[in-house]
Amino acid sequence: MSEPTQTIYVVDDDEAMRDSMTWLLEGEGYRVACFDSAAAFLKARRDDLRGCLVLDVRMPDMSGLELHEKLDALGSTLPIIFVTGHGDVPMAVGALQRGACDFIEKPFHDEDLLVRIRRALELEAELAARRRQDDAIVHRIGQLTQREREVMELVVAGKLNKQIADQLNISMKTVEAHRARVMEKMGVRTLAELVKVTMAVG
C-alpha cells in the first residue's frame, strides 16, 4: 500500500487506458489522478507532490520522454514508470539511463504493473524520508553559532582539540565547550555520527 500522502499520477492520451488504470489502482486502494496530456500534468504539478508517475511514451504535442526531461530540469524526484509500445523499448531503456524508475511494455498484466508501482512508491517513500532527514540536519546546522560551526568543520576534518585551539586562537577549554555544544545541537553522541550526518548534507 502507498503512504497516505502518495498518489499515482497517470499521464496518457488514451481515455480507455486511463479508465482501466484508474479502475485497477483504485481497486487496490491507491489514490489516482489522471491527465490526458503532459501539458495538463505540468500545469497541475507542484514541488511537493508525493507518489509516482505512470507515463505513456507516445503522446501528441509533448511525449512522455519530453515530459521526463522537463521534470528533470525542474528537479522533480517523482519516480517515473514509462508505458511503452514494443517499438519504444530502446527509448524507454534510454530513459532509464537518464534516471527513470522503470518501464512496462503494452500489453501488460495488471500484476506486473502493480509490482512496478509498489517498488516505485517504496523508492519515493525512502527518498522523502531522506529529504526530511537532510532538512532536519540542515536546520540543526543553522542553530550553530559561527564559532561552533568553525569548530565542527575542524572536528569533522579530523583535527585534535589542541590543533583546533591553535588554529582558532582559543583555549583548549573553549574548544571542548564548543565541541560539547556542537554534539548536543547536532543530536549525536560520537565523532563518527557527527561525520556521518555532516557528510549526508555535504
Rank of each mutant, 00 (worst) to 15 (best):
M59Y: 09
M59Q: 14
P60G: 11
P60E: 15
D61S: 06
D61F: 00
D61I: 02
M62Q: 15
M62P: 04
M62W: 01
S63I: 08
S63N: 10
G64R: 11
G64H: 10
G64C: 12
L65H: 04
L65E: 07
L65C: 02
E66H: 06
E66Y: 03
E66M: 14
L67S: 11
L67H: 11
H68E: 04
H68Y: 02
H68R: 01
H68D: 00
E69N: 10
E69H: 12
K70R: 15
K70S: 10
L71F: 05
L71I: 02
L71H: 05
D72A: 14
D72Q: 13
D72F: 03
D72L: 06
D72T: 15
D72I: 00
A73H: 03
A73M: 10
L74P: 01
L74I: 00
L74F: 07
L74D: 12
G75K: 09
G75N: 10
G75H: 08
S76N: 05
S76K: 04
S76G: 01
T77S: 13
T77K: 12
T77P: 00
T77F: 06
L78W: 04
L78G: 05
P79E: 07
I80L: 01
I80W: 01
I80Q: 03
I81G: 05
F82Y: 03
F82M: 03
F82V: 03
F82C: 03
F82R: 01
V83G: 01
V83R: 03
V83Y: 03
T84D: 05
T84G: 07
T84P: 02
G85Y: 02
G85W: 01
G85K: 05
H86Y: 11
H86P: 02
H86G: 00
H86A: 11
D88M: 02
D88K: 06
D88G: 06
D88Y: 04
V89D: 07
V89A: 04
V89H: 04
P90Y: 06
M91V: 11
M91P: 00
M91T: 14
M91K: 09
A92T: 09
A92I: 09
A92K: 00
A92D: 10
V93L: 10
V93Q: 10
V93W: 02
V93N: 04
G94N: 10
G94M: 05
A95V: 08
A95W: 06
A95C: 09
L96Y: 08
L96G: 06
Q97V: 01
Q97I: 00
Q97C: 00
R98N: 14
R98K: 14
G99P: 01
A100T: 11
A100I: 07
A100N: 07
C101V: 02
C101Q: 12
D102E: 15
D102Y: 09
D102Q: 10
F103S: 14
F103E: 14
F103I: 05
F103D: 13
F103G: 13
I104L: 14
I104N: 10
I104F: 03
I104W: 01
E105L: 03
E105P: 00
E105S: 15
K106V: 11
K106W: 11
K106R: 13
P107F: 08
F108Y: 15
F108W: 13
F108R: 11
F108M: 06
H109L: 12
H109V: 13
H109T: 12
H109G: 14
